[in-house]
């Protein structure tokens, strides 16, 4: 049986497969990333707009 046999019963589950099998971890990532990259960064951009003279 070769090392990469997908049906090996003893081999450990690959990390990526474990991640994809964990909906709550994915939920955390899927909410945090846009909250930070889109919403938070966007609001910071707006709040740092200077006042017109």
């Amino acid at each position: 049986m070769n090392e990469n046999d997908p049906n090996d019963l003893n081999a450990p589950v690959p990390f990526m497969q474990e991640l994809l099998d964990n909906p709550f971890l994915l939920l955390f990532l899927g909410v945090m990333i846009p909250m930070v990259v889109y919403s938070l960064w966007g609001v910071i951009d707006i709040l740092t707009i200077p006042v017109a003279k």
């Binding site: 994809l20 994915l26 990532l29 899927g30 990333i33």
Partner: peptide, 16 residues
């Protein structure tokens, strides 16, 4: 599933 993962991580950014 990898393609769906890319959706989870990045799709919402397109609100921009």
């Amino acid at each position: 599933r990898g393609a769906f993962l890319l959706y989870i991580l990045f799709l919402q950014l397109a609100s921009a």
